[in-house]
Amino acid sequence: MTQEGRQLANEWRGIMQAMLSRVEEVLTTQELEQFTVLILKVARAFQDNGSLKPQEKKASSRKITIEE
């Protein structure tokens, strides 16, 4: 990686860490766990060579109460 690329990567790492810190401040532990599961699922969808086929939906859903 070039020096410019390393600099850009470090800049974006800082931005992402700041965003994650803000998310951690506003979510409960349970909400943060669910957020992590969902963000990993989304990331896998984008890493799957662009295949974004709808997945089979589960019969039941679970709601999380969000505290404000």
Results as ranks from 00 to 15, higher is better:
Q7E: 13
Q7M: 15
L8S: 06
L8F: 01
A9I: 15
A9F: 11
A9M: 08
A9D: 10
N10V: 02
N10S: 13
N10Y: 10
N10E: 07
N10P: 02
N10H: 10
E11K: 02
E11L: 05
E11Y: 04
E11H: 06
W12H: 11
W12S: 04
W12N: 10
W12P: 03
W12L: 14
R13L: 13
R13V: 09
R13Q: 13
R13D: 11
G14A: 07
G14D: 07
G14M: 03
G14V: 11
G14I: 07
G14W: 01
G14K: 02
I15M: 12
I15V: 14
I15R: 06
M16E: 06
M16I: 14
M16D: 08
M16G: 04
Q17T: 14
Q17S: 12
Q17R: 12
Q17F: 12
A18N: 06
A18W: 15
A18R: 11
A18C: 09
M19E: 10
M19Q: 06
M19P: 00
M19C: 11
M19F: 14
M19W: 10
M19L: 08
L20N: 15
L20M: 14
L20F: 10
L20S: 13
L20H: 11
L20W: 12
L20Y: 12
S21M: 10
S21H: 07
S21T: 14
R22A: 13
R22G: 08
R22W: 08
R22P: 01
V23L: 10
V23D: 02
E24H: 13
E24C: 10
E24F: 08
E24Q: 10
E24S: 06
E25F: 12
E25P: 07
E25T: 12
V26K: 12
V26T: 12
V26M: 14
L27I: 07
L27V: 08
L27G: 01
L27T: 04
L27M: 14
T28V: 15
T28H: 06
T28N: 13
T28I: 10
T29K: 08
T29D: 08
T29L: 07
Q30K: 10
Q30Y: 03
Q30M: 05
Q30F: 05
Q30H: 08
Q30T: 12
E31C: 01
E31W: 00
E31L: 01
L32F: 00
L32P: 00
L32K: 01
L32N: 01
L32G: 01
L32A: 05
E33D: 03
E33Y: 00
E33N: 03
E33K: 03
E33L: 00
Q34T: 05
Q34V: 04
Q34R: 09
Q34M: 11
F35C: 02
F35N: 00
F35A: 00
T36Q: 01
T36V: 08
T36C: 01
T36D: 00
T36W: 00
V37F: 14
V37R: 03
V37N: 04
V37W: 15
V37P: 02
L38G: 00
L38N: 11
L38V: 00
I39S: 10
I39N: 03
I39H: 01
I39Q: 05
I39E: 05
L40A: 05
L40Q: 09
L40P: 02
L40G: 01
K41R: 13
K41I: 04
K41H: 09
V42L: 04
V42T: 09
